[in-house]
């Protein structure tokens, strides 16, 4: 499995984090995305006409959609840790995976505007990300009241791993962690998972 990767892109980190926790080997091809914009070169546009990273290749299979990539990697986990078997549990996991990959795209964009010269209104994007963090903080407070430590149950799932980077990197676009105590406790639990890895902007310590 080959990941076309740029270390500072949050969405590439999501794939590396899932692969590391699921013990799935990834071959990394590092792309000069910033400032080189290599993912928009003619060669890369053949792989992904949208001109975006990450791209996952497995022989003839080419995946460009973030949740498709994350699910494909997690399904290669020998122990099947991160995708629940039972239909309802899996659906709840997918619900939060959608929140992570679709809704929280505003947080990815806010960070890209703040750090990587992307275009957008960082004030508005930050406000939207804050609203989403509140929803997640409210949800995790309810979960812990029911004895569940993670977003879709008492075990960490693919959704937790996909959600973590947006919160862990939010200080990059000036959204601090003060207001989200339940998220802070949950993030600490994610950090303790076997195979957990960081990226620049997420300290190793804690």
């Amino acid at each position: 499995m080959i990941l076309h990767n740029y270390d500072l892109f949050e969405n590439c980190y999501r794939v590396r984090l899932v692969a590391s926790c699921a013990e799935v080997a990834l071959e990394l091809i590092n792309v000069d995305a910033f400032p080189g914009a290599e993912e928009k070169s003619p060669e890369y546009l053949k792989l992904n006409p949208m001109g975006r990273l990450p791209i996952l290749e497995d022989n003839a299979l080419v995946l460009r959609n973030l949740s498709a990539i994350l699910i494909y990697v997690a399904e290669h986990d020998i122990d099947k840790r991160f995708i629940p078997d039972e239909a309802k549990d899996r659906a709840q996991m997918m619900d939060w995976l959608g929140f992570a990959c679709d809704d929280l795209a505003v947080a990815v964009q806010a960070r890209a505007v703040a750090l990587l010269d992307a275009t957008g209104d960082v004030v508005e994007l930050r406000a939207q990300a804050r609203t989403l963090f509140r929803i997640l903080d409210d949800h995790l407070t309810r979960q812990s009241l029911r004895g569940a430590n993670f977003v879709a149950g008492d075990a960490p799932s693919l959704a937790d791993l996909a959600l973590f980077p947006a919160f862990a990197l939010s200080r990059d676009f000036n959204l601090d962690h003060d207001e989200f105590p339940a998220l802070r406790l949950w993030a600490r639990r994610i950090r303790l998972l076997p195979g957990f890895i960081t990226m620049p902007g997420i300290p190793d310590y804690h």
Binding site: D178, P181, R184, L185, R188
Partner: peptide, 16 residues
């Protein structure tokens, strides 16, 4: 400034 059970042993948080 915080709920006791939200500041676990060995952790820190910023408050205003």
């Amino acid at each position: 400034i915080a709920l006791s059970n939200m500041i676990e042993t060995g952790t820190s948080a910023g408050v205003v």
